[in-house]
Design a protein around this nucleic acid. Sequence first.
DNA 1: ATGGTCGATGGTCGA
Length: 257
Amino acid sequence: MLTVATWNVNSLKARMERVLSWLDRAAPDVVCLQETKLTDAAFPAAAFVSAGYESLHFGQGQWNGVAILSRLGISEPARGLIGEPGGEARALGATCGPLRVYSLYVPNGRSLDSDHYRYKLEWMDALAGTVSAELRSREHLVLGGDFNIAFDDRDVWSPGAFEGTTHVSAPEREVLERIYQLGLTDLFRVQHQEEGLFTWWDYRGGSFHKRQGMRIDLLIGSRAVAENLSWTLIDRNERKGPGPSDHAPVLAGLQIG
DNA sequence: ATGGTCGATGGTCGA
């Protein structure tokens, strides 16, 4: 059994204590982290070594920043996507044992009429191209990330509340569908079909306790990964207690390796 | 419910 996970930590500096205790408890083999908000120089690689993980980090400080932790070795780093717009630290690829892994922090989009929304769609185009290229040589591909897209209405607490906003617009859902059509699967959704299973809750207004969230953090696997999927879960407990990220980790168990 | 919260900052902005 091989466990992969993704978690938007919303500042690794602010979250490090929780991340280390979660690693100890959840014992994942490969972890994709997003929003580290660190420079590469400030990334706490030594602390992860002490916890048993090799790591790669692609950061810029202040905003964005993605990392991969691995207990299965880590090699062949890819910083950024093929033809990626923006030049921000939002995508990091690595080979971890039998898996080719990407940690992804998709642009938020802000609003449907903003340049940042167009940037989001262009960024997703670059992701589709990169995935397509990776699939030519890799059988076992896993994308873990904060996609900032709720693929269908089951993935938001109130479809009415999201009308006219980002995360649910048809172009966003279509570009994610294009990635699925390359042969990839939303690993959590294939096992859990009900509505109201979320990975992100706004800090404001007690959203978590009101169960008002979105499912935007995804583990997406190629066919060879999906065929060997054993279990998936959202670690809701990590959204509780003092000093949580606004995102919960998502985990998957694979019968690989 | 456009934010009453966070985290980057050290003004406000981004989510």
